[in-house]
Design a protein around this nucleic acid. Structure first.
Lengths: 304, 304
DNA sequence: ACGCCTCATGAAAGTAAGTTTCATCCGTGG
DNA sequence: CCACGGATGAAACTTACTTTCATGAGGCGT
């Protein structure tokens, strides 16, 4: 079934560049070379002829066309135009901040800070731009009406999962997070129709998370995937797919930008769910806030 | 060559559209028809093929080309691209995002997303701007040369603390994070000169964290505070103070923006430390990356 | 290991788009 | 009335884009 090449991608809001970055790993090697050129210099690429671009990417025109189709364009001319538009819209980075780039070896700390913050902020913004409100809405509905919510995530994404769990818990939703696979699988097996399972994985290839989500789905739960890559395995076991838009950087394994982007999405979902029932959520928040009040000390800020 | 193709106008400032409008009267009738179409709908025209446009202007392709040359373009493709770029640029920004504002009660999800992302991104940017590189440098030095690094944080900040610990660990630094006060106190008591203690607290008033940091300091460890409020209690027990710049919003208890800001700072420190010894850090990262490789699944592409 | 299949890929054929050339038309002024 | 020059489109031509197809690499089951 899923075979259907419905890939279509009719909806690639936000940036085309962002969209392409996300698709990058799902492209064939030759197409990736093309994609990288395009992402690195959209404006420049728009000026090139297809033959030019093909040569630059050390491949054939045919591959460039395939690339166009892979990212949802009709053909090369359309890509060109979209690229030009995209490039025009984006204000170029003020200074030497390499977008999505690596930190140069000799960089001093001030530069490092500027670069990191720039990329982090961008990831957050771009993620928001390309988020599909309609899908979010559905996810929010599902969560708001869920009997139980299971949240899965390994490693770095585990933090995000855990954070989400805590948030939902604070507004009175029954949410769980499992740091270990076995417990998670057990829990997933107990899910059923009306429950929701959320899997978080930057790469979308973390087998533990994919498996658990699959399990959850087979039990009838609605499954949600949060990943940076729209065509990664996790999306195949998810009813709803939400993507982040962090560009890969080679050096920084932790992919902090990705983490921030994930948290932003989680936050949006959270606020969306909370907004479903303002009164109750607010009350729950107040109660939980009071609960930790005793752990606060002294005069702190001005507050007299 | 009497016509002298001196085309000139290599640089037509302001908008291309404006430029064309200006030239309009000096064009031949048929070219004017083309020009009018283009000016009326730049974006739409960019999508048309030359034949299309010629037909629409009730003229021949040749005339369209002449028009292109008349306005200083090399040919039709170039015009197309410029038009697309032009059209994209004049799209006005979606709408006014409320800076630091609360989410209005009736907001739809798209608005919520925009607002959250905007505030989150701002928090990250502003935090980076006000971070003192000199202090960061000192902290990085301390951590890079530390015998042991203890990281404390409760509740939401605990996630950040934990994340920091994991990061440092991955590049071979001896770092610990303690989710519970008692263990933390015990550990702090064992710190000494040359060790580093990092306390993370958004409000800066979390008693647990303050206490532990105090303990660490009394044992001779260098203490670092990461908080949003430069005059909060935690800063009184810290040798180095790093601040985030998240604006509070009333509704969102979790203060996600603050979390992101904290993470950004942590990331900067991390990269700073890693940069102190590129080679070793890189190696450590590679090794740890390999370690989780087996947990990745399949190709992830569309697979048929 | 073997054959089978799938997929990625570029060469080449085919089609469409863009460009040039040139003959025609039309108005103007001698 | 004719010569002239600019405007114009038809058609030839060139280049760009797209499709098709054969090849070969890599995976998979036997």
């Amino acid at each position: 079934m899923a075979k259907s090449p419905k890939i279509s991608v009719s909806h690639e809001p936000g940036g085309l560049i962002v969209h392409i970055s996300g698709l990058l790993p799902s492209l064939s090697p030759a197409e990736q070379r093309v994609a990288r050129l395009v992402v690195a210099d959209p404006a420049g690429s728009a000026r090139r002829t297809i033959t030019d671009l093909a040569t630059a990417a050390e491949t054939s025109e045919a591959t460039v066309i395939r690339f166009c189709r892979s990212v949802g364009m009709d053909g090369y001319p359309q890509l060109r135009i979209r690229l030009a538009a995209e490039a025009a819209r984006r204000v170029e980075p003020p200074d030497a901040r390499v977008v999505g780039g690596d930190i140069p070896p000799g960089a001093d700390l001030a530069q490092i800070i500027a670069t990191i913050a720039f990329n982090d902020a961008r990831a957050v913004e771009e993620t928001a731009e390309q988020l599909d409100p309609a899908v979010c809405e559905q996810v929010v509905d599902a969560i708001a009406g869920a009997g139980r919510i299971d949240i899965y995530g390994a490693g770095a994404s585990g933090f995000v999962a855990s954070d989400f769990q805590q948030k939902l818990h604070r507004i009175g939703r029954t949410a769980f997070y499992f740091p270990d696979v076995h417990t998670a699988l057990t829990s997933a097996a107990l899910l059923g129709r009306g429950d929701v399972a959320v899997g978080i994985s930057h790469t979308g290839t973390t087998s533990d998370v994919v498996e658990v989500l699959e399990q959850a789905r087979s039990r009838g739960a609605a499954t949600v995937a949060l990943t940076n890559f729209p065509r990664s395995p996790i999306t195949e076991v998810a009813d709803f797919v939400l993507t982040t838009a962090a560009r890969e950087t080679t050096y920084r394994s932790g992919a902090m930008a990705s983490r921030l982007a994930q948290l932003t999405v989680v936050d949006c979902l959270f606020v969306g769910v909370a907004a479903r029932n303002r009164a109750r959520a607010r009350k729950a928040l107040e109660v939980t806030a009071e609960a930790v009040q005793s752990h606060r000390v002294g005069p702190g800020r001005r507050r007299g």
